[in-house]
Amino acid sequence: MIRDITLGQFYPGNSWIHRLDARIKIIWTFVYIISLFLIQSFWGYIPVLVTLGLIIGVSGVPLKFILKGLKPIFLIIVFTFTVNMFMTKGTPLIEIGFLTITEEGLYNAAFMGTRLVLLIIGSSLLTLVTKPINLTDGIEKLLSPWQKLGLPAHELAMMMTIALRFIPTLLEETDKIMKAQMARGADFESGNILNRAKSLIPLLVPLFISAFRIAQDLAMAMEARCYRGGSHRTRMNGMKLKKKDGAAVILMLLYLAVVISQAQGLFGRFI
């Protein structure tokens, strides 16, 4: 059923990683992404792989579940790999027509491909171990210092909260309208692209109207419950950093130190 779709790929659990403050996890993810770009050689991936392995292990998210997340961007990975393989100049290995695969090209392709895969796994891990609603709260908190400069941190977070709440409702609505129009003989599946696009009108018009109705009702209900933007608001679950969050920050700094030292070439000399 359509209502069973999981949102934002969250993998329910109660691990140490799951329970970390969302802000720490967001910062961790940023540090991780930056670290990937500091790495210069394959050796540099070792600390990354070890860290990633540890995090996945502790989080209890099955590896299969994570790898499934790579599927939709498989084409991009292949593209990156191919471009790097053919476009790097250097010592030729194989020649196919006007295309040449060089030693450096193969190395680069493998290096960039690995970086991309690690990038995606790492950032998808954030949504896998953080409840969407906590993620929104975390983003709001992290952005709030910039609120004085005109960044609508609260509004952005509220929009995300509402989106999370109403995506399942709208999916259900879509399902209902689609079935209703099919009962009236609508055909959403056959015909050429033009016909198919046209056949979506009976679905999209009612869906838009529904969305507007929801927006109108919700705005009224929020007003009735004294909503007046972020200024007077308090929060029930004020985000408080705990000991384990501190530990996570220390681990993060340690990780960063290892990666940087490797990038500086310090690490390589020991191996």
Partner: peptide, 12 residues
């Protein structure tokens, strides 16, 4: 023929 609940929501 099947008329769903709240069928007015399918007008377009």
């Amino acid at each position: 023929g099947l008329v769903f609940q709240y069928p007015e929501y399918q007008l377009f």
